[in-house]
């Protein structure tokens, strides 16, 4: 089980330190792999760190413990951020991270529930993880479980029709045990989301689809915690947190750079990136 500290500032500091550690691990594992998706992993690091080191109940020694909360990384290409969080949470040894994308590794290019402990469902094809998370929330409701389901979707991913099919279903069935989070970094492979097929006004869209919506800065841990707390107080509808983020966050040469959506850093870039992250505060 995770230990939740009661002191607010201490909690924020702990999560921030974990987020920095997750960022260095993302950089190192992508450097070792030679391919993968740094931009969208770094933009989600603070959100994922808050979920694993503050919000969720789980037991790394018993990954399928029925009473756990579930996290579904619907934007499965950000697998490195999930793997880093799982390793830091004790699901598997940190040394495994260096095997990312290798032939005999349990760390696939996109998350595989049957290979990696702690992965709730295999994702990678966009939109489907979100829909599966709705199915999980429904299954937990049928069983009158107290467990909650958290799912992270991309802004580009929000162009998939299935996102909105699942969104309508979740509202229809009042799945208040479900929290969606949009990692809104406004970049997708081919450019700015707003230049390709704009999803704005995304909060108004989710609101119109029957969801409670909260807009936050997705890099401010205090705001992430606040939104997750607010979501728990909302009954009779699911909550969508619109987290405004920066792609490649905390690595200056990656921030806002579409080229780092799906390009691994070189050896020199790894060193520079890790240096910047470590200079920004203590690791956790």
């Amino acid at each position: 089980m995770t230990t939740h500290t009661t002191d607010k500032q201490a909690t924020v500091s702990l999560v921030e330190a974990k987020a920095r550690t997750i960022r260095t691990r993302i950089i190192n594992m992508l450097g070792a792999a030679g391919s993968g998706h740094p931009g969208g992993s770094l933009s989600a690091a603070d959100i994922v760190a808050t979920l694993y080191f503050h919000e969720m109940n789980y037991n790394a020694a018993e990954p399928r413990w029925p009473g756990r909360d579930r996290f579904v990384l619907s934007k499965g290409h950000a697998a490195p951020v999930l793997y880093a969080a799982l390793a830091e949470s004790g699901y598997f040894p940190r040394e495994d991270l260096a095997t990312l994308r290798k032939i005999d590794s349990h760390l696939q290019g996109h998350p595989d529930m049957n290979k990696t402990p702690g992965v709730e469902i295999s994702t990678g094809s966009l939109g489907m993880g979100f829909s599966a998370a709705v199915g999980m929330a429904l299954g937990l409701k049928i069983d009158k479980s107290e467990s909650r389901v958290y799912t992270l979707i991309g802004d580009g991913e929000s162009q998939e029709g299935i996102i909105w099919e699942a969104g309508m279903f979740a509202a229809q069935h009042k799945l208040d045990n479900l929290v969606g989070i949009v990692d809104y970094n406004n970049l997708q492979i081919d450019g700015h989301v707003s230049d390709i097929v704009d999803i704005r006004p995304v909060a108004a869209k989710w609101s119109a689809f029957g969801w409670h919506t909260i807009e936050i800065d997705g890099h401010k841990v205090e705001q992430i915690i606040g939104a997750l707390n607010e979501a728990k107080s909302i009954k009779g509808k699911p909550t969508m947190i619109i987290a405004n983020t920066v792609k490649g966050k905390n690595v200056t040469f990656m921030e806002g750079q579409v080229d780092f959506h799906g390009k691994a850093p070189s050896k020199d870039e790894v060193a520079q990136a890790c240096g910047e992250i470590e200079a920004s505060g203590p690791l956790g």
Binding site: E120, I121, S131, L138, L140, I142, E165, A166, M168
Partner: peptide, 26 residues
Amino acid sequence: PDRFFDCGVAEQNMMAMAAGLATTGK
């Protein structure tokens, strides 16, 4: 009625939701 869910005209969501339900033992 409590174990029947009409997904409406949304077959793709029906299939992926079924996968999610399966992870909860259904």
